[in-house]
Amino acid sequence: MTEIEEARVFGPGMRWLAGAMTVACAVLVGPSAPDALVGGSRPAGAVREVVPHRVMTWNLCNPCEQSNAHRAAEIAAYAPQVIGMQEACAGDVARIRNELARRYGLVYHVAYGSVLQDWGRCGGVPWNPDGYGQALLSAAPMTDRVTVEYPDGGSEDRGYMAVTTSVGGRPVRVFNTHLAERRQESVRADQVGVLAAEVARHDRAIVLGDFNAVPDAPELAPMWALATDTDSWCHPSPADGCRTTTDWHSKFDYVFLRGITALEHHVQPSAYSDHHLLETDLDLGQGVAAAPGTRRKR
C-alpha cells in the first residue's frame, strides 16, 4: 500500500495508531482473526506469475468472518492480472494481498474504492473504523484512480472505482462497482446511469462487479447498450444462457467488456463466499466478441 493509499483509507495522522490497533483488534473482533494462525513457507508448486490477460471479480461476502488465507488460495488458483473485490474491508484486502505475495509469489498493487468507514463490518476502532467497499488488485501499476459515491446508495452507501492499468500488455480502463441491494430496482437504475455515462467515455474498458440484478433486469439496459458480457452466450433477452454466480442461483456478478474480446470465462463456487468467483481470459487486440467455444489460454 502506498502512503497516499494509506492516508485515504486511515485518515491523516492516524496511520500509526490504526496499525497498532488493527493488530490488537484482529485477535478480538476482526473478521480476519483466523489468519493469525496461518503460517509456514510457500507451498510446493506455488504459483509464481500471474496470467497477464486474465481478470476476476469476486464479492467477498461480508460479514462472513472467513480466513483471508483461504480467500488468497482461491485467487491464487487462477492468478489473474486484475482482481476486483466487493464487500471488501481494507484490512482484509491488505492481508489477502500479503498472503498472495508470501505464499504464492503473486505480487499485486492495491487501490481502494471504499465509500464507507465501517466499524461493525470491518473492525478497527470507533474513532477510526476500517474502510469498506470495493478494491482492485493489479499486477501492473494503477494510475488515474477515481472513487465515486452514487448520489443514492439505497439501503447502504454504494459507488464505483476506476483505474487505468495494463491487461494483456495493453492499457485499459478498469471499473469496479457494487450496486444497491435486491428489490431496489429504481435506485440501481440511477446508479447504472451514472456508471454507464463514465464507461461510455472509453473505447476500451472492463467493468467488474456485483450488480445485484439478473441479466434481463431493465435497470441494466444502459450497460448492455455499451458492452457485452464475458460470457458470449449471456444476453439480456433471452437470459437463460447466462450461468449463475451466487448460491441462490442468480447471475448478479459481471465482467462487462467494451472494445475487448472475451476468450473464455469460468465460474467457480466457493466455500468462502455466497458469490462465486468469476474469471475470464481476454484478448485486447480485437474489439469483437469471441465465438462460443474458444479455448482457454493458460
Rank of each mutant, 00 (worst) to 15 (best):
S250T: 13
G168E: 06
W127M: 12
L106C: 09
Y112P: 01
G19Y: 13
F10I: 03
W233G: 12
E99M: 05
R204V: 12
S41G: 15
D203P: 04
A36V: 12
L136V: 14
Q191D: 04
R121T: 02
V174H: 09
H70Y: 13
E198S: 10
T165M: 01
L106K: 03
A111N: 08
V187K: 00
R201E: 11
L282G: 04
A7S: 14
Q286Y: 13
G45F: 13
M223W: 06
G259Q: 08
D281Y: 02
M161T: 10
A221C: 08
D190K: 15
G241T: 06
E181S: 14
A76R: 01
F211Q: 03
H178S: 06
L179E: 04
T57Y: 06
P52L: 05
D247L: 12
E149M: 12
D92S: 14
Q268L: 14
A262F: 01
Y104E: 03
L284W: 07
V288E: 14
Q66D: 12
V50R: 03
E264D: 15
V267T: 10
D190C: 00
A33N: 08
N128K: 09
H109T: 02
T246H: 04
G133W: 05
R121V: 01
R243F: 04
Y112F: 15
R71F: 07
E219F: 02
S114M: 06
L137A: 05
P43A: 08
A221R: 15
A291T: 11
V115I: 14
R298G: 02
P292H: 14
D231Q: 12
S114Q: 11
G259P: 05
E149I: 09
V50F: 09
V82L: 01
G153H: 10
V199F: 08
D130H: 03
W16H: 08
V93P: 05
M1S: 06
A26E: 15
E156M: 13
N98T: 14
I83L: 04
M14N: 11
P292S: 14
T143C: 00
P236T: 08
F175I: 10
S41Y: 04
Y112E: 07
G30W: 11
G124K: 00
H202K: 00
G285A: 10
Y160D: 01
A77S: 15
D130I: 11
R15S: 10
L278C: 04
A197W: 03
E5G: 10
T294R: 15
C242L: 10
P236V: 10
A180T: 03
D157V: 12
E5S: 09
Y272Q: 07
D229E: 12
V172E: 02
R71I: 15
Q286G: 07
L220P: 01
V267H: 05
L106R: 03
A290P: 05
V255W: 02
H53E: 15
T177C: 11
G84T: 04
L195T: 05
H235N: 05
L60E: 06
A69H: 04
A44W: 13
E65P: 01
I206N: 01
